[in-house]
């Protein structure tokens, strides 16, 4: 699949430069519905090949444009660590990193990640070496039924990637979009405090930290 992939750096994506070149999605086995208009790349409604970087490696999935990244990950790529809980952006269970930032994968179309970088919970640990957040979650019993846990871990890891020594307030705000029905929140806070290297002073980074 390597050949069909269009390489872009994250910075290109953020700048929105060369947008047409970024559209790596290719209609798979279906005729184009209409001649493409100028400045527009058209795919679908049938299945589309979507090349992207998944957990650091080249990947590709073939889906209709209406399929979300969450469903593509779970039902096409067998990466079931990312959970479907509300499917409407209101629980954080489906949190993945898109170009390094946590987003709800239930509100992202899979076609949209073409040429971009996706990291899921499966990509966080390096083999058996847990990410510090994961290790701290284990130690502080921050997973009960564990269903919210992958999303929770992703939000916490995102926080620590930009804020070294987060305050309790920063931790709470970082996981404010992750619901837990079992009630692990206090354990999550304790885990992240430890993984972040203890209770830090407020860096004032605020939202920029996310």
């Amino acid at each position: 699949m390597e050949d069909g992939r269009i390489r872009v750096t994250r910075r290109d994506v953020l700048r929105g430069a060369g947008a047409a070149a970024l559209v790596g999605a290719v209609a798979a086995g279906q005729e184009p519905a209409a001649p493409p208009a100028k400045g527009l790349a058209r795919v679908g409604p049938g299945a589309v090949r979507v090349p992207f970087t998944l957990n650091g490696a080249a990947a590709e999935v073939s889906v209709e444009p209406r399929v979300t990244l969450l469903d593509a990950l779970r039902d096409r790529l067998d990466l079931t660590g990312t959970k479907r809980i509300c499917d409407h952006g209101a629980c954080g269970g489906c949190t993945v990193f898109l170009d390094g930032k946590p987003v709800n994968s239930c509100l992202v179309l899979a076609v949209d990640v073409s040429g971009r970088e996706v990291t899921t919970i499966e990509g966080l640990a390096k083999g058996d070496d847990l990410h510090p957040v994961q290790a701290a979650f284990v130690k502080h019993d921050a997973a009960m039924c564990g269903f919210c846990t992958p999303g929770m871990v992703m939000s916490c890891a995102a926080l620590l990637s930009v804020t070294k020594n987060p305050t309790e307030e920063q931790i709470r705000r970082a996981v404010a979009g992750n619901l837990c029905r079992c009630g692990t929140y206090p354990h999550v806070f304790a885990a992240v405090r430890e993984a972040g290297g203890g209770r830090g002073a407020d860096g004032g980074a605020g939202e920029a930290a996310r």
Binding site: A19, G39, L40, R42, V43, R66
Partner: peptide, 17 residues
């Protein structure tokens, strides 16, 4: 519902579409 997906280079093209 299934839909075709049109990615626009700029707002003008999108608006036209």
């Amino acid at each position: 519902k299934a839909f075709a997906y049109l990615t626009a280079d700029d707002f003008e093209a999108a608006s036209k579409a």
